[in-house]
């Protein structure tokens, strides 16, 4: 006899509401890669924010680890149509890293070890919307998923959450990044299905 509990049906409906248009739920964690996986020793790792006034703010790995950490649980949405619910991360909010950064720039170009870049408005990195994360699901972030540290901007398609993040350049004009110069959308809001240029 088939038994369908009200709770189960309720959760299913709720999960469907969490899926942006055109997405499906993925329980694994697919790896998409545009190049070889960079290996960055922690004693040589650094993260830098460069302002439009040519001022640089730098953090070593130990300095990053000494900052207050947060443990966001978020849904992530890949432009290749998979979404993963309730992913758990640990890292530093970009609000903490931007505390002493003076800027009037509106745009950010994120760059990574290995040469990857992605662009987004600066406001999408602030106010609790983005982190530099170094742990996933209670473990150190694996290199294939962007370790030692990656950007996490879960409200945009996941190509914006640059793996192997190395720094952020602040700019007064928008400068398209790696996928954005090859047909993908400049902003990438999954709820508006902004996959390609013109969407």
């Amino acid at each position: 006899m088939a038994i369908i509990s009200r709770g189960f049906r309720g959760r299913r409906t709720e999960d469907r509401d969490r899926l942006p248009p055109g997405q499906y739920e993925e329980r694994g964690f697919p790896v998409l890669s545009a190049g070889p996986t960079p290996r960055v020793p922690l004693d040589r790792w650094e993260f830098a924010i460069d302002t439009e006034a040519e001022r640089t703010h730098r953090w070593t790995w130990d300095e990053l680890m000494a900052l207050p950490a947060e443990t966001p649980t978020v849904d992530i949405h890949c432009v290749t149509k998979w979404s993963k619910f309730d992913t758990t991360w640990e890292g530093v909010s970009l609000d903490v890293l931007f505390e002493d950064v003076e800027t009037t720039a509106d745009y950010a170009l994120v760059h990574s070890y290995g040469g990857y870049t992605t662009n987004l408005p600066l406001e999408d990195l602030l106010d609790g919307k983005a982190w530099i994360v170094h742990r996933f699901d209670g473990e150190e972030l694996e290199p294939r998923h962007g370790g030692p540290a990656r950007l996490l901007v879960p409200h945009l398609y996941f190509w914006k959450s640059a793996k192997w993040v190395r720094g952020i350049r602040l700019m007064t004009e928008e400068w398209p990044g790696f996928w954005e110069t090859a047909g993908y959308h400049d902003y990438g809001d999954p709820w508006r299905e902004q996959r390609y240029q013109g969407d």
Partner: peptide
């Protein structure tokens, strides 16, 4: 996916 990226076998640049 998300796109084909072909790199040089010598220097690994795109």
């Amino acid at each position: 996916e998300p796109g084909l990226v072909a790199r040089c076998p010598g220097c690994e640049e795109v």
